[in-house]
Design a binder for these strands. Structure first.
Lengths: 297, 297
DNA sequence: ACAGCTTCATTGATTTTCGTATAGCACATC
DNA sequence: GATGTGCTATACGAAAATCAATGAAGCTGT
């Protein structure tokens, strides 16, 4: 029985098999042949001392162990990608790929013009946009720079606080003409309210500050804030929207402005390891500049 | 010029060379030979398209690129270790290694009896204790379970809040006999106060709540809270100490109990990926039980 | 029922990689 | 100044991994 540490490359083929579902698919994606992949999986199983897959002629079925190991393998892949990204953009000058993560509304409504401007200034810059609400993207190496509405507390991060984005309740003009305009927070109980599917840190903060809103029953739940915005614009009901975004659609009317006023802090976060990478500095600074107009300080 | 993704194992030898400072040292630590390591480094350089080391007869000097890539390589190594840890303890039953991280005081003063009890109940359980104040140990895969004084906000974590640990100012009896007992917070200006070297989240919270303390000039700064405790016990001066810890040393006297009272929240945190690992559940639950007596709910 | 597709397993030839041995260089010690 | 120890670079034979080709088994649609 071998106790030596397995070749790291075996983890890559293991993950490819897990993703592809078969040795052949993994071999295709890796540019190898099926027998090679099979042997490498065998080698990893021998090294770990336990089987990873149940072989069958239709494909491989991962065992519980393989499923348990998958997150770590994915993490290694993400880190390997980050390493390559880092290496590719190392020369002086702003070039290479930057992975950027942000919430969906920000990514769809706010970032595009900023990124377009960055691209004009730095033609060799490539940007990958990951729209997600997971705050741990950075530490899991799945992104280089993050735009977040939650204050990051980690130490190894380079943080810039931009200010606050005001958030209010909005509804489309047609909805208000149809259903009336609520005058008191209690009136919301008789209205169609658009809410959130799952609890995010930003939402939790909102609940704490607005107990009246916390107990509402939502007529539509969507985990995507873009979908919520679309529903508001379509006149479905009343929902939360960032004030600078709502201003762009003239038909959106603010509801209960005196009662519901929320301010979301906004931060730009980057690995401090990436400080020396010119392309990351460029994107970081570009975001700081570009988001100023969207934020109240 | 090859643009294909390099073999992941090359990253491991790269990191070994970085750590060892020479091809030969890396070869020894990896169980390989020096020519092999040299060839693999060459292969990685060819794959990245840039040199990683400056060769000289006394050893290799890492280039700026190599230094920039080091954090990612370390992250890959940590993840690989986590994967192996996961695989080794997969069979049912509590066995295998669990990496535990905690602050230094907790690790030195509080955890040992708890871990001893766990070890008695589970003889096949092995525990690695990492004493550090970095909160991102978990997401960087450097530890499986963490005992923290800061509320974690990440989503993919399994969190259990235990309660609060009271913290107060303490001094040794001999010091107070020598220098007198302060009666007002202002009196601290005339005393020898032991403080912190660098800013941690817990300290930041402390500063916010106790502005009188924030402006003190410290006679001794130590980043290790264990060193602070030792200094207090030795009669060096007045410093912060967890109340349950101070009770164990009868000669320690609480100072300004009416003015300085701080409560540190305490959390146990674990990757939710590890929920299914029996040994992690065992340690998690054991910590919850063992720390109850040390915490006020 | 049968042909076509996809899957995994096995085998032998080939290419790649690794290890041993050796040479060359720089620094420290005696 | 000779010697010893550390390091890297190179050459060559051996071991190991790879590829290509083939066989067997199961699902799918006609």
């Amino acid at each position: 029985m071998k106790l030596s540490e397995p070749d790291w490359d075996l983890y890559r083929t293991f993950l490819a098999v897990l993703r592809g579902g078969s040795l052949s698919a993994a071999a295709r994606s890796l540019g190898l042949t099926q027998p090679t992949v099979g042997r490498q999986v065998e080698a990893l199983e021998a090294s770990l001392g336990a089987p990873l897959f149940l072989r069958s002629p239709l494909g491989l079925t991962p065992t519980a162990l393989a499923e348990a190991l998958r997150p770590q393998a994915e993490a290694m892949a993400a880190t390997a990608e980050a390493l390559l990204r880092m290496a590719s953009g190392q020369g002086q000058g702003v070039r290479g790929t930057v992975r950027l993560t942000a919430s969906e509304v920000v990514g769809v409504e706010v970032l595009p013009p900023i990124l377009a401007g960055l691209r004009v200034r730095h033609p060799a810059l490539e940007i990958e946009l990951v729209l997600s609400n997971a705050v741990d993207d950075l530490l899991r190496q799945q992104a280089d720079i993050a735009v977040r509405m939650v204050e990051p507390r980690q130490e190894a991060l380079l943080v810039r606080r931009l200010g606050e984005i005001p958030v209010g309740l909005y509804a489309h003009q047609t909805y208000l003409m149809r259903c009336g305009v609520p005058q008191q927070p209690e009136d919301l109980a008789d209205h169609t309210v658009i809410g959130f599917d799952r609890e995010t840190p930003a939402i939790r903060a909102m609940r704490e500050r607005l107990p009246a809103v916390a107990q509402l029953r939502y007529a539509l739940r969507a985990d995507s804030d873009v979908a919520q915005l679309a529903a508001i614009r379509a006149g479905f009901g009343i929902g939360f929207c960032q004030v600078p975004l709502a201003r762009r659609t003239p038909d959106l009317v603010r509801v209960l402005p005196a009662y519901v006023e929320l301010r979301l802090g906004t931060w730009i976060v980057m690995h401090s390891d990436l400080r020396s990478a010119p392309r990351c500095r460029a994107v970081f600074d570009g975001l700081v500049d570009g988001l100023r107009s969207h934020v109240e300080r």
